[in-house]
Design a protein around this nucleic acid. Sequence first.
DNA 1: ATAAAGTGAAACCGAAAGGTTTCATATCCT
DNA 2: AGGATATGAAACCTTTCGGTTTCACTTTAT
Lengths: 105, 105
Amino acid sequence: MPAALKHDVFQAIADPTRRRLLRLLADEEMPVGALSGHFPTSRTAVSKHLRVLEDAGLVDHHKLGRQRLYRLRPEPLVEVKAWLAFYERFCDKRVADLKAFVEDR
Amino acid sequence: MPAALKHDVFQAIADPTRRRLLRLLADEEMPVGALSGHFPTSRTAVSKHLRVLEDAGLVDHHKLGRQRLYRLRPEPLVEVKAWLAFYERFCDKRVADLKAFVEDR
DNA sequence: ATAAAGTGAAACCGAAAGGTTTCATATCCT
DNA sequence: AGGATATGAAACCTTTCGGTTTCACTTTAT
């Protein structure tokens, strides 16, 4: 188990912008500039979101030239999965519910 | 689709106190007083957390005498489950069809 | 050598979050 | 009726959050 992370996973995925960032990084690793192009906010704001995600262990990065390539690290999501599993006996998963989620992205 | 909820599910479960509240309510419905006994904070603070959970559709309540009995409503958690499912392709291939669905929209 | 590109750090700001205390209201008990 | 119980609403405070602007640093290009 990695040392104590500065940010909680639940808190990290609470923000819609951060969830979209994870989604973007699921396809391929990307530099900050490319990522921030998908958001109406400043590059600096996106950079701070990436920091939160990194503190939660959900992304990491390596330098390439003057770029910083961010990469998805989905492992910490198992904590959410485990938490959710407890409640699964209550819910039924209908695919219809996915539609609402997809709108949100 | 249920009417627009005032609070997001992801945001609602981001707080540890609220997650504990859900867990307590999973066993049985409880009045505010009984719930707040499990926390170091004031009853009013717990009451406000319950309000957030209710706004997210994760709990509801009915009155019984002078008490307000809160009850777990786990259905909105399917949204989290669906979101999470997308990332399981990284460790589980069986969700390939789910992934295809999400990418098709 | 100099300029431009890609980025984080720092300082700052307004709004929201989480907490408390106080007060009002409804219900139960005697 | 009068007092205790259970609770939300309101007002307020402090900290955190998401955002911006400015600045410094590193790497690439000319």
